[in-house]
Amino acid sequence: MKDYYALLGVSPDATPAVIKASYRKKAFQYHPDRNPDPDAAHKFREVQEAYEALSDGDRRKAYDDSRRRSLIDDPLLSAKQIWENIIEKAKIS
Rank of each mutant, 00 (worst) to 15 (best):
Y30P: 01
K20E: 12
R69W: 10
P36S: 02
E52N: 14
R60I: 05
L8T: 08
I86H: 13
P75H: 04
S70D: 15
A41F: 07
K25R: 11
Q48E: 09
I87Y: 02
S78Q: 15
Q48H: 14
M1E: 09
A17R: 04
E52V: 13
K91I: 08
A50F: 02
R59H: 04
R59M: 11
I87D: 09
F28I: 03
R45C: 11
R67Q: 07
I82S: 07
K26N: 13
E84K: 15
L54Q: 01
D3W: 03
S93I: 10
L7F: 03
K91Q: 13
I86G: 09
I86Y: 08
S55Q: 13
I87G: 11
G57A: 15
D39T: 11
S78G: 12
R68M: 10
T15E: 00
H31T: 00
I86V: 12
R60M: 03
S93R: 14
R59I: 03
S70R: 12
I87M: 07
A14S: 07
D58G: 06
F44E: 02
I92W: 15
D3R: 07
I87K: 15
G9K: 06
D74F: 00
A27T: 01
R60W: 03
K2S: 07
K20H: 14
L71Q: 15
K43Y: 02
D3F: 10
P36Q: 02
P36E: 00
L8N: 08
P16W: 01
W83Q: 11
E84M: 12
Y51L: 01
L76G: 05
I82M: 10
A90I: 06
R59C: 09
A40T: 08
L54R: 03
D65R: 07
R69F: 15
I19E: 00
R67Y: 13
V18F: 08
R45V: 07
K20Y: 04
L54V: 01
T15W: 00
K26C: 09
K80E: 13
P38T: 04
D39V: 11
S78K: 14
H31Q: 03
Y4D: 01
S66N: 13
S66F: 07
P38C: 10
A90G: 08
D73W: 05
K26I: 05
F28Q: 14
F28C: 05
P75F: 05
K89C: 05
K61I: 02
Q81G: 12
A40E: 12
R69I: 14
M1N: 13
I19L: 03
H31F: 03
N35D: 04
D65Y: 05
D56I: 02
I92N: 10
Y63G: 00
